[in-house]
Structures are given as structure tokens and as C-alpha cells.
Design a binder for these strands. Structure first.
Ligand code: ZN
Ligand code: ZN
Ligand code: ZN
Ligand code: ZN
Lengths: 149, 149
DNA sequence: GCTGCAATTGTTAAAAATTAACAATTGCAA
DNA sequence: TTGCAATTGTTAATTTTTAACAATTGCAGC
């Protein structure tokens, strides 16, 4: 049971997503809702294939387009190290950076805000005259539950 | 010209690789050498396909196996955010963590040791009883050269 | 209400990336 | 030299992602 407050999470996430899309004028269409639902119904990172399976065998283009949309508007994150996606309903500021703790056994993902500790990562970029676009901080390992099993 | 000291780099890298393999008893075979050579001859991250092209159209299995070997013994790193590989000849301690600054334009990669600033990343893991395996800290963006062009 | 246009979807299929399977070969130690 | 484990060579399958284009939808202006 990775998350006891799960239903609560999901409900708040939906509210957040609705508001975000309404406010920004994004079209929160059926296929996008379906994919968001699949992601947000779990704290695990799901591959595109896993998402498709859960949506009545959704066709790849539709799923990939929805995943891209959600990622771009901030309702999901792409976890590069395992090539999977996780839903998100946090309010992220521009330039925000998160750290993801990814269990390699159950694929549960914990998202942690790194904004306040970002300088350690940025100092090298600045010293190298590097202009950052995206930052990925991912840590794979075993969550507490999976260490015991 | 991303690296003026390039030939120097490559020579030292070869020495390092030879020593490492000899010392640890790894077999530094031809195909592994070829892939290492391709990677270390550049400071850019190369996809598996790019590596294959440079090796007289090497067959996928051979290239993937060599990349896996090099990655596991520490002579290369997998850059998850762009799904590419970069050669490495640094002496990494166990549990070492590096930050990669990856230019999205030219794919030049700068590797920075993060060991001394690691606590910021680890504090959340410890608080969550998360047992880390691999850590990816990757920042995509534009290198100094590519900002000017 | 219609009309036109941009955004999104549905559908088919291709392309790209990765891996499986297994035979052939190599390196090395007994 | 014999045996065995590691590695390679080869073919082909599987998985993942994208291209292409027609059909549909949502919405603004008439
Ligand atoms: Zn988030
Ligand atoms: Zn777990
Ligand atoms: Zn390194
Ligand atoms: Zn560049």
C-alpha cells in the first residue's frame, strides 16, 4: 500500500488538472483524460505500453500524443531512466526541478521538490556558461516496502 | 572545437581503460575496444545507432553488448534523457554520482563530479527509507558554443 | 444556424530501437 | 589437449516510436 491517501490524491489531482486546463485554455479531451486517469490512478511510473494496455488497448499514436501533451503542460513527468511516465498534480513554477525516487521493483515514484537545493546543480552550469533547458534528477533504487519483501 | 586537449584526453583515456581492465580481469576485446574508441574519440553523447555507423556498420547485438559492458565497468555512461552514451575515463569511487550537462544542439557532454554535493539529493532518499542504486543527474541545454551560433 | 479553419483524433503502416535465440569461436585453466 | 565459460557472429523477432493522411471536432465569425 504505497499510498493510503490515494483516493484523496486522485480527487485533488483531477481538480487541479481541470483548473489548469480551463485557466490556460488547454483542451482536456477524452483521450487526454483517459491517459491522465491511468497515470494519476497510480503512484507508479508506467511505460507507454502499460498505459495503452490499461486503456482498452488504445492505439499508440493517441497514447503517445496524450503523454506528450500531459508532459508538456506539467500533468505528467517523463522518467527518462526507465522510460516511463508518472502523473503529477503539483503546482510547478517555471524552471522548477524535481527529484524522482524510482523503485526498480514496483516502479512506485516519489517526487520531491528540489528548487531550494538547486544551486548545487546549477553552479557547474553557470561556471561552464551552459544555458539549461531541462533538468533530470532521478534516483533508482528500492522503496521501503520492496526492501522488506 | 569543444576540446583542444582532445588527443591528450584520448591517450590518457586509453591508458586508463587498459589498466582498469587488466587490473580487474575484464576482457577488453576488439569489439569493446572499437566502441570505446568511438565514444572516447568524442566528447559528445552518441546514440547506439551513431556508434554502429562509425564502426563499419557494426551489428546491433555486438554494439549493444559492448555498450552495456562499458557502462557497467565505468568506461561509459548512459545518458538517459537523450538515450545516448558518452565515454568516460574518470576514476569513479563506488557510489559516485556525476552530473551531466548535455547540449541539445551538438550533444557535447560535460561530466561533473557531484560527490561533494550529494547530500542534497540523498537527504530525501534517507527520509523516505529509499535505498539508492543508480543516480541520474542530467541537465540538457545549450553549451557556450551553441548559444553563439 | 451555417461556414471556415485550426486542433485533435482515428487508422494504417512504416521506421527505429532493442532484444532473443542459437551456433561458432575464443581464451584460459586443468 | 581437453573442457568449459565467456564472447562473438548471425538471423530474425520484438518492442517502441513515429509518419502520413483522412476524418472529426470545437469554436469564432458571419
Ligand atoms: Zn511534478
Ligand atoms: Zn517498491
Ligand atoms: Zn564518468
Ligand atoms: Zn553545443
Amino acid at each position: 500500500m504505497p499510498c493510503d491517501h490515494h483516493h484523496h490524491c486522485a480527487k485533488e489531482a483531477w481538480q487541479f488538472a481541470e483548473d489548469l486546463c480551463a485557466q490556460k485554455g488547454y483542451r482536456f479531451t477524452d483521450s487526454r483524460r483517459q491517459v491522465f486517469d491511468v497515470l494519476i490512478s497510480s503512484h507508479k511510473a508506467l511505460t507507454a505500453k502499460e498505459v495503452m494496455k490499461k486503456i482498452n488497448n488504445g492505439q499508440p499514436p493517441i497514447t503517445y500524443r496524450a503523454l506528450e501533451f500531459l508532459t508538456q503542460v506539467g500533468l505528467a513527468h517523463h522518467i527518462a531512466s526507465i522510460n516511463a511516465y508518472v502523473g503529477c498534480a503539483h503546482h510547478h513554477q517555471e524552471g522548477h526541478v524535481a527529484e524522482f525516487l524510482i523503485c526498480t521493483n514496483c516502479h512506485e515514484v516519489e517526487e520531491v521538490d528540489l528548487s531550494s537545493q538547486l544551486s548545487a546543480l546549477m553552479v557547474h552550469a553557470k561556471a561552464s556558461n551552459f544555458k539549461p533547458q531541462e533538468t533530470y534528477v532521478e534516483m533508482t533504487g528500492l522503496c521501503g516496502t520492496c526492501q522488506d519483501s
